[in-house]
Write a protein that binds this DNA or RNA. Structure first.
Length: 84
DNA sequence: TTTGAGCGT
Protein backbone atom coordinates (compact mmCIF):
# COMPACT_ATOMS: atom_id res chain seq x y z
CA UNK A 1 0.00 0.00 0.00
CA UNK A 2 1.53 3.26 -1.11
CA UNK A 3 0.50 6.21 1.01
CA UNK A 4 0.71 9.87 0.11
CA UNK A 5 1.54 12.24 2.96
CA UNK A 6 1.33 16.01 2.58
CA UNK A 7 1.36 19.26 4.55
CA UNK A 8 4.44 18.04 6.33
CA UNK A 9 6.70 20.43 8.19
CA UNK A 10 9.72 21.45 6.12
CA UNK A 11 11.98 20.17 8.83
CA UNK A 12 10.46 16.70 8.56
CA UNK A 13 12.79 13.82 7.67
CA UNK A 14 12.35 10.30 6.31
CA UNK A 15 13.01 8.90 9.77
CA UNK A 16 10.35 11.11 11.31
CA UNK A 17 7.84 10.04 8.69
CA UNK A 18 8.63 6.37 9.09
CA UNK A 19 8.52 6.60 12.87
CA UNK A 20 5.09 8.19 12.65
CA UNK A 21 3.62 5.34 10.64
CA UNK A 22 5.49 2.60 12.48
CA UNK A 23 3.44 3.53 15.49
CA UNK A 24 0.37 2.24 13.63
CA UNK A 25 1.93 -0.67 11.71
CA UNK A 26 4.89 -2.09 9.85
CA UNK A 27 6.43 0.42 7.47
CA UNK A 28 8.23 -0.99 4.44
CA UNK A 29 9.68 2.36 3.41
CA UNK A 30 9.13 6.05 4.02
CA UNK A 31 10.39 8.85 1.80
CA UNK A 32 10.14 12.60 1.95
CA UNK A 33 10.46 14.36 -1.39
CA UNK A 34 13.36 16.79 -1.24
CA UNK A 35 13.97 19.65 -3.61
CA UNK A 36 16.95 19.33 -5.93
CA UNK A 37 18.19 22.90 -5.47
CA UNK A 38 17.30 23.86 -1.95
CA UNK A 39 17.90 20.36 -0.59
CA UNK A 40 14.92 20.89 1.68
CA UNK A 41 11.65 19.02 1.95
CA UNK A 42 8.93 19.83 -0.57
CA UNK A 43 6.43 19.36 2.21
CA UNK A 44 5.16 15.96 1.16
CA UNK A 45 6.27 12.37 0.89
CA UNK A 46 5.33 8.74 0.46
CA UNK A 47 5.04 5.80 2.84
CA UNK A 48 4.85 2.16 1.84
CA UNK A 49 3.28 -0.41 4.17
CA UNK A 50 3.09 -4.15 3.60
CA UNK A 51 -0.09 -4.69 5.59
CA UNK A 52 -3.10 -3.10 3.89
CA UNK A 53 -5.27 -3.02 6.98
CA UNK A 54 -2.52 -1.40 9.01
CA UNK A 55 -1.99 1.05 6.18
CA UNK A 56 -5.66 1.93 6.04
CA UNK A 57 -5.72 2.30 9.79
CA UNK A 58 -2.65 4.54 9.72
CA UNK A 59 -4.25 6.67 7.01
CA UNK A 60 -7.41 7.23 9.02
CA UNK A 61 -5.50 7.83 12.24
CA UNK A 62 -2.78 10.08 10.84
CA UNK A 63 -4.86 12.00 8.33
CA UNK A 64 -5.50 15.55 9.48
CA UNK A 65 -3.48 14.84 12.57
CA UNK A 66 -1.14 17.36 14.12
CA UNK A 67 2.55 16.72 13.49
CA UNK A 68 5.22 19.23 14.53
CA UNK A 69 2.42 21.74 14.94
CA UNK A 70 1.27 21.14 11.36
CA UNK A 71 -1.94 19.52 10.18
CA UNK A 72 -0.84 16.74 7.85
CA UNK A 73 -2.77 15.11 5.02
CA UNK A 74 -2.62 11.34 4.56
CA UNK A 75 -4.17 9.65 1.55
CA UNK A 76 -3.70 6.62 -0.65
CA UNK A 77 -1.06 7.34 -3.27
CA UNK A 78 -1.95 7.46 -6.93
CA UNK A 79 -0.14 5.23 -9.41
CA UNK A 80 2.26 7.22 -11.54
CA UNK A 81 1.46 5.20 -14.63
CA UNK A 82 -2.28 4.55 -14.52
CA UNK A 83 -5.53 5.85 -13.11
CA UNK A 84 -7.63 4.03 -10.54
C1' DT B 1 16.17 28.70 -6.09
C1' DT B 2 10.29 30.56 -3.47
C1' DT B 3 6.73 28.38 1.95
C1' DG B 4 1.77 25.83 2.02
C1' DA B 5 -1.80 22.85 -2.60
C1' DG B 6 -0.48 18.66 -3.93
C1' DC B 7 1.36 12.80 -6.01
C1' DG B 8 8.21 11.06 -5.95
C1' DT B 9 15.59 13.46 -6.08
Amino acid sequence: MNIFVASLDYGMTNEDLQDLFEDYGSVSSAKIIFDKFTGRSKGFGFVEMDDNQEADNAIEELNESEVNGRKIVVKKARPKDAAW
